[in-house]
């Protein structure tokens, strides 16, 4: 190898290494611009009366055991979603009275679970929902990566699945609203495009500044989520994590992950180039 080709190889290598982070950020921006078109649900916790119709409708839509919604004893302790209950309503006692909050997958704009999944079983659909498919290999990394502790694994099954809210993907494909939204008697859940629902949430806060706490949970949390909440009290009082930050979780690892293939290809190429150069000099 002559000097010119050696320098060429090295300069290409440096160019590759420096442009890779730009490539990563470019992709990230493209995703953000898509998020306006994502479907979303606005949850107005001031309207929820804890009737649990959403839980019932969800169970029905997903062929899971129907919960007894007349049993109020479930509110005594905070519940988490499970493999048989993809959504749960919890009651929080606050200075503004009892507040009921529905919990389910938040359908992040850039979901950590989908980024972490090795086999793309967890997917962010271009319409917005985060769905799970049965090519899952059961590694459960999605469960660890989720900032909201949502995916649940069927430990007791011979053919275990990850269970979580799928935004009623099948119903969406049929042109229907999610089952919980349809069932909500109080219109505490409103389905629509994310951008429009943020506008609607802002309108409600703006028109009733004393009624609402001035924040839309999910607008910026973990890079934005598909489920948006408004509330009369600060969100930490009603069971929300307020320390999750506004950076999408995949962003934390993206730079490193995009660098890996470049390092793996260019570092050996660089060493080979040096070796052939020095070898040529010896001859």
């Amino acid at each position: 190898m002559d000097r010119r080709s050696f320098l060429k190889a090295v300069s290409f290598g440096i160019a590759g290494l420096t442009t890779s982070p730009f490539a990563a950020t470019k992709r990230a921006h493209a995703k953000h611009s898509l998020s306006d078109d994502f479907v979303a649900v606005l949850v107005d916790t001031t309207r929820c009366i804890g009737c649990r119709s959403c839980e019932e409708a969800c169970a029905e839509a997903h062929h899971l055991p129907i919960p007894d919604v007349s049993d109020d004893s479930v509110f005594e302790k905070e519940r988490q979603t499970s493999t048989s209950q993809l959504t749960v309503v919890n009651r929080y006692r606050t200075e503004k009275g009892d507040i009921f909050v529905k919990k389910q997958c938040m359908h992040c704009n850039e979901p950590a679970c989908a980024a972490a999944c090795l086999v793309k079983a967890m997917q962010k659909r271009k319409e917005g929902p985060v769905t799970w498919q049965d090519n899952c290999m059961g590694c459960r990394i999605c469960m660890v990566s989720c900032p909201f502790d949502i995916p649940k694994f069927e430990y007791n099954s011979w053919n275990p699945r990850i269970q979580k809210c799928d935004f009623c993907w099948e119903r969406l494909m049929r042109g229907e609203e999610p089952a919980c939204v349809e069932a909500c008697p109080q219109e505490a859940l409103v389905f629509g495009k994310r951008k429009e629902l943020i506008e609607e949430a802002k309108r409600r806060i703006y028109q009733n500044p004393d009624k609402y706490y001035h924040h839309i949970y999910g607008e910026h949390e973990v890079g934005g989520t598909g489920w948006l909440y408004i509330s009369a009290v600060p969100f930490e009082q009603i069971g929300f994590k307020t320390d999750v930050g506004t950076t999408a979780y995949p962003e934390y690892t993206k730079g490193f992950l995009y660098a890996v293939p470049f390092v793996l290809i260019l570092w050996p190429a660089f060493l080979t180039a040096i070796r052939s150069l020095t070898k040529a000099e010896e001859e």
Binding site: P185, E187, V190
Partner: peptide, 19 residues
């Protein structure tokens, strides 16, 4: 029924009844 997506500030029939 259902609520008008063009005018979300007006409640749908179900929401109007219940609220």
């Amino acid at each position: 029924t259902p609520l008008d997506p063009e005018n979300r500030s007006k409640l749908g029939l179900k929401g109007a009844y219940h609220l």
